[in-house]
Structures are given as structure tokens and as C-alpha cells.
């Protein structure tokens, strides 16, 4: 099944029409400078069904899931949920995991809490 706007809306439960384009999400985002597409652009691009650039963008994996945009959005748009939905739509496809178990040993250090590994797999692998 092709990834389309409806699928993203369905997975995320977000209604991008609520957005008044104030940009507070992007004003708030702590990962902004690491992102090619910013939270407000996710909302706009999903609403406009302009998905191709998002599906191919590293920005999907840059979101910190810190929920600051969700907390501060005046109109309850919840941009982070939308970003998560696009990411899930991508990694749920066969062979599209963003993190593979084989890569893991090289990333470990003795101090690293288990939580880091668990959440990375939950975030980047299906």
C-alpha cells in the first residue's frame, strides 16, 4: 500500500487543518537546526499531500520526541505525532528499518543504559 496523506492522518490521528500557521512548533523545536524539514513544514506538507520529500528525509529520525511542540501548540495540532506517523509509515515497510541489530555492537559503550537501546529500536525499527 502506497504511503499517502490519508494513511498519515489515520496513523497519527492528527488534523493538520487545525493549524493556523503560527510556527510556534518550529520556534520551540530543540532539534530545529538538525532538521531539513521543520515541524511546521511537516504539518503543511502532509496537509498538501506533498509527502515524497518527507519520506526521503533524515528529518524523520531527527525529531527528539520531546513533545515541546505538542505542549506549546495553541491549536492542539500535535506536530510530533505527525512526524512519528510519517516515520512509522516508512519503517513499517519491508527492509526500511533505520536501525539494524548488526549495527548495535559498534554503538555500545559500557555506561549506556538499556533504555537507550530499547527506545532506539522502538523508534527506528519494526
Amino acid at each position: 500500500m502506497a504511503i499517502d496523506r490519508e494513511m498519515i492522518l489515520q496513523i497519527s490521528g492528527v488534523n493538520p487543518k487545525l493549524c493556523m500557521k503560527c510556527g510556534k512548533c518550529s520556534g520551540t523545536c530543540p532539534a530545529y537546526d538538525g532538521m531539513e524539514y521543520h515541524p511546521h513544514q511537516f504539518v503543511s506538507m502532509v496537509e498538501n499531500a506533498n509527502l515524497e520529500p518527507l519520506l526521503a528525509s533524515e528529518s524523520l529520525y531527527t525529531c527528539l520526541s520531546c513533545m515541546a511542540c505538542i505542549q506549546r501548540c495553541p491549536r492542539q495540532v500535535e506536530p510530533a505525532k505527525l512526524i512519528e506517523a510519517v516515520r512509522l509509515a516508512v519503517i513499517r515497510q519491508q527492509g526500511c528499518d533505520h536501525l539494524l541489530p548488526d549495527e548495535l555492537p559498534a554503538l555500545l559503550d559500557p555506561e549506556l543504559p538499556q533504555q537507550a537501546i530499547v527506545t532506539a529500536f522502538r523508534k527506528y525499527k519494526k
Partner: peptide
């Protein structure tokens, strides 16, 4: 929109889009 204002050193730090 401004996302956050923080107390800086002798000033306010404003983060915005």
C-alpha cells in the same frame, strides 16, 4: 512565533521561528 524565552546572563534569550 516565539517558542521559548529563557533567562540568560543579564538578558533574556528568545528562541523563535
Amino acid at each position: 512565533m516565539v517558542g521559548k524565552v529563557e533567562q540568560g546572563d543579564g538578558c533574556l534569550k528568545v528562541q523563535a521561528s
